[in-house]
Amino acid sequence: METRKKPISTALKAAFPVTVPVMTGYLCLGMAFGVLMKANGYGALWSAAMSLVVFAGSMQFLTISLLTAAFDPLQAFLLAVMVNARHMFYGLAVLDKYKGLGKVRAFLIFTLTDETFSIVSSVEPPEGVERKPFYIWVSLLDYAYWVGGSLLGGLMGNLLSFDTTGMDFALTALFVVLFMEQWKKKEIRPAGAIGVACAAVSLAVFGADNLVIPAMILILAVLLGGRKQLCR
């Protein structure tokens, strides 16, 4: 097959453009994270190391406050599980896509962030590009942006002269676009609406800091409760 000649570079060419929004968001947020770490006495190597082993944006920002509070590893562990609980749904949703990919599956699971999940679950690799290298590149590029951003932020401190306020909106825009991509599938639309509605209700009831877990429970309840209707 002609298309199989250079699966690596064709997959990279297909994966890179879809990760550009993530690059914008991750570089900005990663740098902000590095700068904040630095301001709290943790240099670039600490930031890069944390990004390498944790790779979860909002949790890493929270970890800065854990690092500057009293030493409490159990609390840190529980907080990480709760803040990142939404990842469990991502795993469920890509069980099928990540099937039969061999050893690299471990890397794909290790790097399954909000943004990586949103791409692999919404964007199909183009014609002639295999699933496996496409997912690997998306995951690897996103990982590199995040680690690179935090390293840069730690190295530069707040030397940045360019005002990046609002640049992290790229991630919001990414989710809006990928939501619309999901919306194209008619039979999936009710699920999308349920996600928005449950999250909005949860935000109104539980507030901005505690919205995720109640929203997940609501979503699960409504999706499972309405399964007969939603399955057509």
Partner: peptide
């Protein structure tokens, strides 16, 4: 779930 979670993320 992908569609629902994308809604949640927005």
């Amino acid at each position: 779930l992908p569609a629902a979670m994308m809604g949640l993320l927005v």
